[in-house]
Amino acid sequence: MDLYLLLVSSFLCGLLVLDNLQFAQVSLSRPSLVGLLIGWLVGSPIEGASLGLGIELCYSTFLPLGGNVPPNGAVAGTISALVFAFAGRYYPFAFFAGFFSGFLYAGLDVKLRQIRGEWSKIVENEVSDGKIRLNFWMAKSLMQENISAVGFVLFFSVFFFALAVFLRFAFFRDILRMAHFMVLWAALSAILHKFAGYVKNDRYKK
């Protein structure tokens, strides 16, 4: 495992994750692109991209509507690419490492948003007192997410590298392989049925 590459990848993820919510939202944080970029950094761009697209398909049923916090694609794409490159190059294991990491980060994201709720009150009080420094709060919010994502990726990458010791057991590998194969088909089916439902509703409205 190259520590330098791990650090650089984490920092790159920290930047890309900002596109998920706080900046632009032009889908730079989509798992397929993040997997491609991080994969390219660690020497496996094709595997990174395909891991990312698989995760993207699975996450497509989770929409960021209202206060709903979907699983984080940027973190998922990063961890899957890193785990593939540095922990046995076993595709299904890397896929699920990324897949579940996205959900774990969503839990952290909820906490971050709750913290920012306290900031919202502080900003209002400051403005009432004539102290307008929105740039400071914007920068603080971006730094908060950036640092959280970097720390999360570093911690859980190492966690999954350690978990990769179970890959020596064929039983574990077989379960992962079968589950990975089925999950991607299930994801494709979920999208197909989603659009089928939309088309059915359109016909019903007519």
Partner: peptide, 22 residues
């Protein structure tokens, strides 16, 4: 681009929107 910056459960996009029009 920063409208969702500072998104929180209290005011939702309030901080970001205020920044955009500030």
């Amino acid at each position: 681009f920063f409208i969702q910056c500072g998104w929180n459960f209290e005011g939702l996009q309030n901080i970001g929107f205020c920044y955009v029009v500030s």
